[in-house]
Design a protein around this nucleic acid. Structure first.
Length: 500
RNA sequence: GGUCGGAUGGCCGAGCGGCUAGGCACGGGUCUGCAAAACCCUUUACAGCGGUUCGAAUCCGCUUCCGACCUCCA
């Protein structure tokens, strides 16, 4: 494919990417609800869309990338009678709701930085856009597609569905949904979780309706004035209001996890069509979930692995810590639309693979070139990488091509193949544009501290002397002891090199 | 119960009508004081049963398992 194609959930097809305005791309990503520390599931989306963003920039586009922070409105438990997630956590931790939001926003962004994810162009918060949300709710009211009950406002899905299709994105049929509501609450598989607020459920005209504005009880810590009384915005409206504010009523790409497809994104489309008279986005991109033992990783299932636990190796499933770049590499080794199963073995394999790639990368600049034409070429790799990226961001294939490149680099390094200056320059370009470029990988750099370097040199000199005197026992002792601490020693014709 | 996806070698994961990725692990070799690294070689998998086709892991049907969504989730 000579140009970028993306799988659009809206059409369920691979589509040629063509921006609405030539040369510019607007992207909106549903960010986290900040009520807990970031886990592995929170990391996949940002990586996937970071690669998309970098690739678009690589292709010369001007990209505005908006990723929100949801710090109000998201309800805990089932149905709209649940408690606000932020509020609940605030009570648990005896903190201001804003303090909770700030704490976990910081934690989230710290992980983003470690993963080498470019910061959003704009990072709007739901609480900072209450007015915009109220205005949008009013517009929906004015259009006659929302109704007020007891100080709350609900979107009238049934009425909307008469002239529109509530289900364009998720492929759902409203009638099925209706019967689904019955079946789910009476069927054999229905398991009621926490307390279901029946009053709130009943005040909606229809189970499919969703809240635009919720009335706040007096003790509710987060509430704002509105013409419907004191309350707080519903979950879906914040993304609609903020995306429209910063990207316009119609923008290029809306992304998020597959689990947000319904009802969140479906609701966003309905809200956008009613309030802004336009479907919000041209391309809807959804990444799949990270699973653990075949099941979705989710906070509610209690099988989550925190990012921090991965980085320090403290989780029971892990034998050791893994670096942020190992995680990034691990994520990119799978296609974004498939599930990715997490395990210590899978992480270990990714770590070794990434180390192998780094070793080859480190050889590039010192590769000896031959005059004229060398036998090593990379044109097929350059082409292959472009084709793979253009085919719905097939990063696993890109990485496979990169490993073929590593093989050739090693061959040249071993003197078994020859490279010309021209091709060497191309290889350096590939490293900078692909690996460090749109894949966003950076070398794990643990061996650069000066003091460490000096100390290592002393040990290596000792070992060299021991070897000179044929004292292999001492020499191996030094090497093995270092190895035990994670230092890898390599004897090469040019001298001994080490890495951590 | 409804809707939508999956089942690929020891493991992770691409491919989606013929040329049958890649990584990790395993085995053999070159190199080396021994290692490590690197390189080379070896190992033909696509849930089961039918069907379409000159040809199917790839298309169609049935069966069996698994998952996601339908209720908060990245």
């Amino acid at each position: 494919m000579s140009s970028l194609h993306l799988y659009n959930t809206l059409s369920r097809k691979l589509e040629l990417f063509q921006p609405i305005t030539e040369g510019h791309v607007g992207i909106y990503i549903c960010g986290p609800t900040v009520y807990g520390p970031p886990h592995l599931g929170h990391v996949r989306g940002p990586i996937v869309f970071d690669v998309l963003r970098r690739y678009l920039i690589h292709n010369g586009y001007n990209v505005r990338f908006v990723r929100n922070i949801t710090d109000v409105g998201h309800l805990v438990g089932d149905f709209d009678g649940g408690e606000d997630k932020l509020l609940k956590q605030a009570k648990v931790e005896k903190l201001e709701p804003m303090e909770v939001a700030q704490t976990y926003t910081n934690a989230y962004n710290a992980v983003m930085d470690k993963m080498n994810i470019i910061k959003p162009s704009i990072e709007p918060r739901a609480t900072g856009h209450i007015i915009e949300q109220i205005e949008m709710i009013q517009a929906i009211m004015d259009a006659g597609l929302a109704y007020t009950i007891n100080g709350s406002v609900y979107f009238d899905v049934i009425a909307y569905n008469t002239n529109n299709n509530y289900g364009v994105l998720s492929g759902r049929i409203l009638e099925d949904l209706q019967s689904g509501h019955d079946a789910i609450s009476s069927g054999p598989n229905f398991v009621p979780s926490q307390g279901r607020a029946l009053e709130s459920q009943n005040e909606k005209r229809n189970p499919s309706d969703f809240a635009l504005w919720k009335k706040a009880s007096p003790e509710h810590l987060m509430q704002w004035n509105s013409s419907w009384g004191k309350g707080f915005p519903g979950w879906h409206i914040e993304c609609s209001a903020m995306s429209a504010k910063y990207l316009g009523a119609y923008f290029d790409i809306h992304g998020g996890g597959l689990d947000l497809l319904f009802p969140h994104h479906e609701a966003e489309i309905a809200q956008g069509i009613v309030a802004h008279k336009h479907t919000p986005a041209k391309y809807w991109i959804h990444h799949n979930m990270i699973t653990i033992a075949g099941q979705k990783m989710a906070k509610s299932l209690g099988n989550g692995v925190l990012a921090e636990q991965l980085f320090n190796g403290s989780h029971a499933l892990l034998d050791q810590p893994y670096s942020p770049m190992t995680l990034r590499f691990f994520v990119l080794q799978a296609h974004y639309r498939g599930t990715l199963d997490f395990s210590n073995n899978a992480l270990l394999a990714a770590q070794k693979a990434w180390q192998r790639m780094q070793s080859a990368i480190n050889l590039i600049d010192n590769l000896k070139v031959v005059d004229g034409k060398g036998s090593m070429e990379v044109d097929d790799i350059v082409l292959g990488i472009r084709e793979s990226m253009n085919d719905d961001l097939n990063t696993p294939q890109v990485i496979a091509h990169l490993f073929e490149l590593c093989r050739r680099i090693n061959l040249v390094n071993d003197g078994k193949d020859q490279i010309s200056l021209r091709v060497k320059t191309l290889v350096q370009q590939l490293r900078d544009d692909v690996c460090f470029g749109f894949l966003g990988l950076i070398l794990d750099d643990k061996s650069n501290s000066d003091g460490l370097n000096d100390a290592m040199q002393i040990l290596l000199d000792l070992r060299k002397n021991a070897k000179k005197e044929n004292n292999w026992v001492l020499g191996d002792q030094i090497r093995d002891a270092l190895k035990e601490k994670g230092f890898e020693i390599k004897d090469t014709p040019e001298g001994t090199v080490w890495k951590l």
